[in-house]
Design a protein around this nucleic acid. Structure first.
Lengths: 357, 357
DNA sequence: GTGAAAGCGCTAACAT
DNA sequence: ATGTTAGCGCTTTCAC
């Protein structure tokens, strides 16, 4: 099989402790000794056994990311950002998909999944305030996207309420008054703090502040936030006969489904109906028309979450009290709300060198 | 800290071996003993230390997935399928993003990343036939998406050439004769076997079979297969003044970028230009117009890849010779090539139970 | 600055 | 059917 510390030590003519010191960049090693060891390492193609290291040190160098599904654009982009943030710190990422199943989410916080990890970044859907005590877990945990008030855990969340309010104000600013919403939660548990609930609250606040009554007929639930459900909710809205001149989709994927449904029905966007989505995913810049959206600061969220988790993993003894961070958001106006399209490259540029063989 | 086998053994009044037998479902344990052990397990909240198990057994229960980026729709959907296939078998998945950087890809096959895994599913971009010997790795490896001819590794690939040919035949069947292509490789290494090269070959074969000369002015490279590059390549094509009545985008994301660029230019799809993409990603069903595409059998690819990897991981002694599998593909006609739109739910239905608190 | 030895928690061999 | 023992490869005292 592969070489061990002992093999390297034998070849280099030193003890395994010295080899270990070199591998781990322990400073007090004589340069000549270090070189001898490194030579032996290269010669044998030695690679440390991470299971053994993990057993001894209690750290695996891997963190877990528990999200509903990588298949959904927001989470795909989030996972990309999380993986990059982890890689910067030398950490791997195990991705676990909860599929929005509460039992699966409970497994995550019970530590029944993702067990070879040093800590977990978790984006729950069905964990509410009533579950706060469950979050008292014996491993580092950072919660994303929801705010479990009073919980014992670090959170990196969004300004769900105020950014949703700003999105609706964006529509109001266009003179629209009959503003529909798709993506509300199907049912609302008493302790709901999910993104859907909070964004609906922002919608209501914006309308109330403008002196416009909230019309329940304009608020549609949509199940999971996927294209098909966005299209279906919009078709239902059209079929209901309720008139509307703007649409707030609680995320971009729903909005793109809505664009499709409106297009099929011959409704013009933004002339007849203005649309704004949420998340500012890559696809928003390439639909026809391009889609206005709320940029919730996703990259910041990922970076902060990983940084917090790393701190918790390194923490020993006295615990820092739980922290709660919300990055800034901003509204991005595009064609779907009457703004001009900008063809700038806004997808992140990643190095793509020529084929060097 | 957390309980160990010894703790459980002490509480249950048995030896640690018996506990281990129970944990690992070893059959020959007296039911009463088993119950006693399980009680102690529950009482102590015992969870096996996977690092220790990994060290001893040589297996971690985690596989690696190395792909260019989860942010790209095809890979997001692939990762979803791979994670589900792995979960069925009790395996976790560490996701590693190569970003199409060759050095990073070399790290993957050198085992310098994803080292806490039992095996790796790898979708390379810059590994060519000349690298075949590098694939002689000491760990289970399944290659996706490319076929390194004569390599020592299991492959699950697509019918890149013949399905691309079928896609172009689909366009020819509409009576189109000036068929452009976007997404060709920027440069072509001598040993290129990448998806781009193979799909271009299918394009050429289709044209040649139809007696239509291949016009290099109709073939555009596009860098990475992202929306922005698809739009840019299409704008360049339009700006070049070369006339075309159909467009084959080498993947759906490029195609959606192309739809955007054509829409901006007032070109009607499919009337003026018919478009077909590749991958049959979720987004194809919700663009305006909806996008015809090649369904390469992605779910099958994921399932087969994980199954092969699991077999290799379990393999001892005599090695089965490398296998090469290509699932069936098929062409999906939608509005962008003049087919009617179907509003069926074709995104996978995943369980989404009500909020049960 | 380097070495010797203990032991992390588990599984596999062997013994009973 | 259950117990005993050794040891996976590493890091971590504690010597020297």
């Amino acid at each position: 099989m592969s070489a061990t510390l002992h093999d390297v030590a034998r070849v280099a003519g030193v003890s395994i402790k010295t080899v270990s010191n070199v591998i781990n960049d322990y400073p007090h090693v004589r340069p000549t000794t270090r070189d001898r060891v490194l030579l032996a390492v290269k010669e044998l193609g030695y690679q440390p056994n991470l299971s053994a290291r993990g057993l001894r040190s209690g750290k695996t160098g891997v963190i877990g990311l528990a999200i509903p599904s990588v298949r959904e654009a927001y989470f795909a982009e989030l996972a990309d950002s999380i993986i990059k943030a982890a890689e910067k710190r030398g950490l791997g990422v195990v991705v676990d998909q909860t599929n929005e199943v509460r039992e699966h989410e409970l497994d995550v916080i019970a530590g029944r999944r993702l067990r070879l990890t040093d800590g977990i970044v978790f984006s729950p859907v069905h964990i509410g305030e009533m579950d706060a005590e469950l979050l008292n877990v014996p491993f580092p945990l950072v919660i994303l996207g929801e705010s479990i008030f009073g919980g014992p855990t670090d959170h990196v969340t969004m300004h769900n309420v105020s950014s949703a309010q700003a999105a609706v104000e964006h529509l109001l600013g266009l003179g629209r008054r009959r503003i529909a919403l798709i993506g509300a939660a199907d049912s609302e548990p008493a302790d709901a703090v999910g993104s859907a609930t909070l964004r609906v609250r922002g919608y209501q606040q914006a309308l109330e502040a403008a002196g416009i009554p909230v019309d329940p007929a304009l608020i549609r639930s949509a199940g999971r936030w996927r294209h098909d459900n966005g299209a279906a909710a919009t078709r239902a809205l059209l079929a209901s006969g309720t008139s509307f001149d703007a649409l707030f989709a609680l995320n971009d994927t729903l909005a793109i489904g809505a664009l499709r449904a409106l297009g099929e029905a011959g409704v013009r966007v933004p002339d007849d109906v203005a649309i704004i989505g949420f998340d500012n995913t890559d696809a928003t810049r390439f639909s026809l028309p391009s889609l206005s959206s709320v940029d919730p600061g996703r990259d910041d969220i990922a970076e902060i979450a990983v940084e917090m988790l790393v701190e918790r993993i390194a923490e020993k003894g006295e615990r820092v009290p739980p922290r709660r961070i919300k990055p800034d958001f901003h509204i991005v106006g595009r064609e779907s709300t009457g703004f001009p399209h900008v063809t700038e490259l806004t997808e992140p540029e990643t190095p793509s060198p020529a084929h060097v063989h």
